[in-house]
Simulated assay, not measured.
Amino acid sequence: MIVKDWCSFCGECAGVCPRNLIEVKEYALVFNEGSCKECDTCIKACPVKALEKEEN
């Protein structure tokens, strides 16, 4: 996952992740180890469009 500079660390993405893989810690998003299913729920929930998938 790529987090853009304009992320406000509001926690919306963490709140909707069905696998609880995202945490807001101080001024950072932490993506926990786990099996992300790439459902894009976190991307869609971001009010400022600060998240995007990393190209492989």
Rank of each mutant, 00 (worst) to 15 (best):
A45S: 15
G15P: 00
A14T: 04
C42G: 02
A50H: 09
K44Q: 09
K53C: 05
P18F: 04
V16K: 01
K37A: 12
C46D: 07
S8W: 05
S8T: 15
V48L: 04
G11A: 01
R19P: 01
C7Y: 01
G15N: 07
P47H: 06
G15S: 10
E23T: 12
C7L: 03
C13P: 00
C39F: 05
E12Y: 08
E26K: 14
C42F: 03
E55D: 14
E23C: 08
C42Y: 03
P47Q: 07
V3T: 05
N20D: 15
E26V: 11
D5P: 03
K53R: 15
V3Y: 05
T41E: 09
V24Y: 01
C17A: 11
N32L: 15
A28D: 13
A50Y: 09
S8M: 14
C10T: 03
P18A: 13
Y27K: 15
Y27I: 03
Y27H: 12
I22K: 02
C36D: 02
A14D: 04
E23P: 01
K49V: 04
C36K: 08
S8L: 13
G34R: 05
K25L: 12
F31Y: 12
M1D: 03
A50L: 13
V16G: 01
G15K: 00
D40T: 06
L29P: 00
K25T: 07
V30A: 10
L29I: 14
C10D: 07
K4L: 13
G34C: 09
T41N: 03
C17Y: 09
E23R: 15
C39V: 07
E55C: 07
L51C: 08
K49Q: 12
I2A: 07
A28N: 08
F9N: 01
P47N: 05
V24F: 04
F31R: 01
I22D: 02
I22G: 02
I2C: 03
C42T: 05
R19N: 14
E12R: 07
N32A: 15
A50W: 11
K53M: 14
M1N: 05
I22Y: 02
A45V: 11
F9E: 01
K37V: 15
W6L: 13
V30F: 07
V48F: 04
A45N: 10
E12M: 11
C13W: 00
A50M: 08
N32G: 12
G15E: 02
F31G: 01
E52Y: 08
C17N: 10
F31S: 03
E55Q: 11
K37G: 13
K49H: 12
E33S: 14
G34Y: 06
C36I: 06
E38T: 06
P47E: 10
G11Y: 02
C36L: 06
C42S: 04
Y27D: 14
E33C: 05
G11R: 00
A28K: 13
C13N: 02
D40F: 09
F31W: 09
R19E: 15
